[in-house]
Design a protein around this nucleic acid. Structure first.
Lengths: 186, 186
DNA sequence: CCACTGGGTCAACGCCCGTAGAATGAACGG
DNA sequence: CCGTTCATTCTACGGGCGTTGACCCAGTGG
């Protein structure tokens, strides 16, 4: 195998292992040695490629931004539900790594805020109300609360439920938050 | 000062410092030395009194159970809102210590589950629906999600909002979750 | 007043971690 | 074919941690 390919493969194996272990144990409890062992390489190699544990975490927890399409409050709420349904269907390991670490690691907390900010802004703009920012924050808190308890804490009823069931139960809540009283149809 | 009083005072100072630091940094990042320093004593004394870091955490994070009165689904939902309002008004340090650590510490996760279980059961029993357990879990997830983002992540809009404002926005959501369709007045 | 209990301190041990740097050997380019 | 690059490993250092046990000294009870 060529050297370039070898390197790409090793980096990929390290990143995959890092994502899994960071998501399982959080930043503090994952050790570079453990990641290296899971990837089948030596710890020094991880250093050599990624520079430090912080940088490895940064690379392992890069999250593809899940943009919400603009539109009316109802449409944006529905888009947020769809996005949630997707994240409840296939487990997003990289964002779980951030979620698992955000309460005990400042970097992870920043990354969490940064990842949620565009969604938050889009929600805020779509909600026609003076307390739009608080409503948007509550929506975001609900989404992340559900994901955290399902995947990280594995509370049985949330872990066992189907994505559709959860999304259906949350739909009226999202509509209620997205639609202030003075805008609701009577 | 008598020796018994001296000891009680020292234990109390240690526990208070431990609660604050555990809530701030989480289990892993708080060191016994830091707790001892904050309490103005030596690290060895903490060991002497509490036996181990785990036991100290257990003692520091004892949570007074916040029982929900029974009743109809609506009443229980309102009681849950009241309880939330109380927790949004005066910061519950001990339960923040658990919350901060639950994603990275198995003990904290267990304590979190144990603390939420009675509320969860009471909610489940009050909700007249086959998916009552999922609805109750969602309610619990929302409560904890809001508290976590307000106190631990300090997302500005949630941290700045008044408890009343938050409770008022959540009331319709709680009613929606507590009242399944076939029970709703038309 | 004296023997003793017990609150409190201090220094040290053993462990694990992130990180650094030298060493090795196989792919590479001319 | 040979010098060089580079993927990879190995060994070690320095620091922080939980935990331990010896030690000191002020209350305490008789």
């Amino acid at each position: 195998m060529t050297r370039a390919a070898q390197r790409r493969q090793s980096e990929e194996r390290i990143l995959t292992a890092a994502r899994r272990i960071f998501a399982e144990l959080g930043y503090d409890r994952t050790t570079i040695r453990a990641v290296a062992a899971a990837a089948g390489v030596d710890g020094g190699l991880v250093m050599h490629y990624f520079g430090s544990k912080d940088l490895l975490f940064a690379r392992a927890s890069e999250i593809p931004a899940d943009e919400l399409p603009g539109g009316t409050a109802d449409e944006v709420a529905e888009a947020l539900l769809t996005s949630l349904g997707r994240r409840l269907t296939d487990e997003p390991t990289a964002s779980l790594a951030v979620l698992r670490s955000m309460l005990t690691n400042a970097d992870a907390a920043d990354r969490y805020r940064a990842a949620g900010e565009p969604q938050l802004n889009q929600l805020t703009e779509a909600i026609p109300s003076s307390d739009a920012d608080l409503r948007a924050s509550l929506l975001s808190a609900i989404v992340h609360g559900v994901i955290a308890e399902r995947y990280l804490l594995r509370l049985t009823h949330l872990a066992d439920a189907s994505p559709e069931q959860i999304v259906d139960l949350l739909r009226p809540l999202f509509q209620s938050l997205a639609t202030p009283p003075e805008q609701q149809p009577r």
